[in-house]
Amino acid sequence: MTTYLPDGYEISADSARIDAARVHHWLSTDAYWAMHRPREKQDKAMEGSLNFGVYDVGSGEQVGYARVVTDHATFGWLCDVYVDRKVRGKGLGKALAAAVRDHMGPMGVRRILLATKDAHAVYAEVGFEPLPGPDQWMVFYFDQSLRPRPR
């Protein structure tokens, strides 16, 4: 699916292959943006999204995940990108971001957005760039604890 993918791994957009329990465990225990997310909420998010899995070809074990909230025509939001700690450093995150980009392009999607605290370089390597005109974008917080604190 992508030229960045290391030997021995594959990426699939087949939601039926996703190990939902494993994804929930990763995100709810080890992802700063999804800590303590309830399983029901994660399952519902996955049901309404385009899901990608990274798999070890030899064992079939899922080792990475990403989902895209999209209308499949004009817009996508890449989120919940996670690579198992046991296989980090092999370029799987970059391969996953590139696979999402390559999958979404033929749909005619005009842009894919994402937010990250610490992986800007990974995404930049596959063409993502800082948001131009961030002052044009707005956000509404149902959960006020997510609102940035004044400095």
Rank of each mutant, 00 (worst) to 15 (best):
A119Y: 02
L27K: 08
G76T: 08
G93D: 03
L96A: 08
D30A: 15
P6F: 03
W77H: 13
D143H: 10
I11C: 01
G8M: 03
Q42E: 11
G60I: 00
Q42R: 09
S49W: 00
V100C: 06
D135I: 01
L92E: 13
V109Y: 01
A119P: 02
V87G: 07
F128W: 04
H25M: 14
I18R: 03
L78A: 08
K94S: 11
V83G: 09
D84N: 10
T70C: 10
W77E: 08
M46Y: 06
A16C: 09
M138W: 14
D102Y: 00
M1V: 08
A16W: 10
R88G: 09
A121Q: 14
E129L: 07
Y32S: 05
G60C: 04
E125L: 07
A20Q: 14
A73D: 01
L113I: 15
V81P: 07
G64F: 08
R149N: 14
R67Q: 13
Y82N: 06
N51S: 12
L92M: 08
H36I: 01
L92A: 12
F142L: 15
D80G: 13
T3R: 13
A45L: 07
G53S: 09
A31G: 00
E129K: 14
D7H: 13
E61C: 01
M1E: 07
K90M: 14
R67D: 09
M104Y: 09
V63P: 07
Y9K: 09
G8W: 03
A45E: 04
G8A: 03
H72I: 09
V83S: 06
I11L: 02
T70P: 11
R101L: 06
F52S: 01
V109R: 05
F52C: 01
P38G: 05
E47V: 07
P106C: 05
V68T: 01
R110Y: 12
D80K: 10
A73S: 13
A66M: 02
I112V: 12
Y32K: 05
P134V: 08
L78R: 09
D7Y: 11
I18E: 05
A124H: 00
K86T: 15
V23C: 11
R39T: 08
H120P: 02
Y4C: 11
R110T: 02
G108S: 06
R37W: 04
V69W: 12
A20S: 13
M46Q: 14
E47S: 09
G48K: 09
H120N: 06
D19L: 10
P150N: 11
V139S: 14
A16Y: 10
G48V: 03
D30P: 04
R147N: 10
K94I: 05
F75C: 13
A66Y: 04
G64Q: 05
L96I: 04
H25W: 14
V23Q: 08
F142V: 15
P130K: 14
A13F: 00
W33S: 04
P106F: 02
A95I: 02
G93M: 04
L96N: 06
A99I: 11
R17M: 02
A66T: 01
R67T: 10
S15F: 06
V109M: 02
A16S: 15
P148R: 03
A115F: 12
G133W: 01
D71C: 05
A66R: 02
E125T: 12
L113R: 15
K90D: 08
V100E: 03
D14C: 04
M1S: 11
A45V: 07
A20F: 09
